[in-house]
């Protein structure tokens, strides 16, 4: 067994067992952490396949951003574990059936003559695939790349226009106004006439 194969099996075993952990963990936070482990080891598999860009992106995007959001959501929601686990046994046969069908379909597709085409030769190691992707993205695929950017702009506009609202009666701070405040805004100087001592007090003192 070569070292490469050994590393592959090591990561594959960790990926699979952590994937099982995602489904079986009783605590949703543990499940999310297992998912992070699964993503991380899959990223390692990508690197092993000389697709280092995909590996890095997987870690950055999924582990770094998506899973952190997941964890936030899980911690904010009060999830009852018992209700989630209800019916696990009841739905298990159906789930297994679906899994078997999917696996059978995948094997069927892989073996079918329709998609039977030569596996492309791996590019020599000297080619840096991050650089290669960048080069092709900013030359040949410039036009679709720009359109994808426009789609993101539209998503931002849509999200803001649908959620931004000025609500009445909301108490909020206006720092600018707070800083600009002057003495006359806060302090009221009341002019009062001086009063004479009343006779009753004098009597008390004495």
């Amino acid at each position: 067994m070569t070292l490469e194969l050994f590393i592959f099996y090591l990561f594959a075993v960790i990926t699979l067992s952590s994937a099982v952990g995602v489904v079986t963990a009783r605590n949703p936070v543990y499940a999310a952490l297992y998912l992070i482990l699964a993503f991380f080891t899959s990223a390692a598999t990508w690197v092993l396949l000389e697709a280092e860009f995909l590996g890095v992106v997987l870690v950055l995007v999924y582990v770094g951003a998506v899973m952190v959001l997941f964890l936030f959501v899980i911690m904010m929601l009060d999830i009852k574990i018992d209700t989630l686990k209800e019916g696990m046994v009841r739905y298990l046969p159906l789930g297994l059936l679906v899994a078997v069908i999917v696996v059978a379909e995948m094997i069927f597709v892989m073996k079918s003559s329709t998609f039977d085409r030569a596996i492309p030769e791996p590019a020599p190691l000297s080619i840096d695939n991050t650089k290669a992707l960048g080069e092709i993205l900013y030359t040949e695929y410039m036009y679709p790349f720009e359109i994808a950017a426009v789609i993101l702009v539209v998503a931002i506009i849509a999200a803001i226009s649908l959620t931004l609202r000025r609500r009445e009666g909301v108490k909020k701070q206006n720092q600018g106004e707070q800083v600009r405040t002057r003495k006359s805004d806060r302090l009221r100087v009341v002019k009062m006439d001086s009063e004479k001592r009343t006779s009753t007090r004098q009597e008390e003192r004495s």
């Binding site: 036009y143 679709p144 359109i147 994808a148 789609i151 998503a155 506009i157 849509a158 226009s161 649908l162």
Partner: peptide, 24 residues
């Protein structure tokens, strides 16, 4: 290319979804 057909379609649809929901 099919890539651009899809991207154009998504640009159109995304703007349309937001317009339909305009009166929130």
């Amino acid at each position: 290319t099919m890539l651009l057909i899809y991207l154009g379609l998504e640009l159109l649809s995304l703007a349309m979804y937001a317009l339909v929901a305009f009166r929130r």
